[in-house]
Computed example of a mutant assay.
Amino acid sequence: MSCPALIDFEASCLPDYGQSYPIEVALARSDGSSRAWLIRPVEAWRYWDWSPEAEALHGISRALLETQGLTAEHVLDEMADFAKDCRVYADADLDQYWLEVLCQAVRRPLPFPVHHLGELLQEHRFTRDQVAAAVEAARKRLPRQHLARDDAQRLALMVNLLVNGEV
Rank of each mutant, 00 (worst) to 15 (best):
V75A: 00
Q68Y: 05
E73S: 09
E55P: 07
A54S: 14
D91N: 10
F82A: 03
D93G: 02
F82V: 05
S51A: 02
A72Y: 07
E53C: 02
W50C: 06
L70K: 11
V88P: 06
S61K: 06
A54D: 00
S61G: 08
D85G: 03
Q96M: 12
L94S: 03
D77S: 01
D81S: 10
D77C: 00
A72Q: 05
A83T: 02
P52D: 14
D95K: 04
L57W: 14
I60E: 10
Q96R: 14
E66D: 12
W50V: 07
M79V: 04
Q96D: 10
L64H: 13
L70H: 14
A92W: 09
H74M: 01
F82S: 06
E73M: 10
A80S: 14
L76P: 01
D85H: 13
A54L: 10
A90E: 01
A90D: 04
A92P: 00
E73K: 12
L70R: 14
E73H: 12
V88I: 09
L64Q: 15
K84I: 13
V75M: 06
Q96K: 15
K84M: 10
C86T: 00
Q96L: 11
L76E: 01
S61Y: 01
F82L: 04
C86K: 07
A92L: 00
C86P: 04
E78W: 01
E73L: 15
K84R: 15
D91G: 12
Q68V: 05
P52F: 08
V88G: 02
S51M: 12
Q68K: 12
L65S: 04
L76F: 02
D77G: 01
C86R: 11
I60G: 03
E55Q: 14
R87W: 08
C86N: 08
H58G: 10
F82R: 07
A80H: 02
A90H: 06
A80P: 00
K84T: 13
R62L: 15
Q96S: 13
Q96T: 08
R62I: 10
T71Y: 03
R87Y: 05
H58W: 11
R87Q: 09
A90V: 12
A92V: 08
A83K: 02
A90P: 04
C86I: 02
S51T: 07
A90K: 06
A56F: 12
D81G: 02
H74S: 11
E66R: 05
E66M: 09
R62W: 09
Y89L: 03
E55K: 01
G69I: 06
L94C: 01
A63Y: 07
T71G: 15
A92Y: 04
S51C: 13
L64W: 09
R87V: 13
T67N: 09
A92R: 11
L76G: 05
Y89C: 05
A90C: 03
D91R: 05
E78S: 07
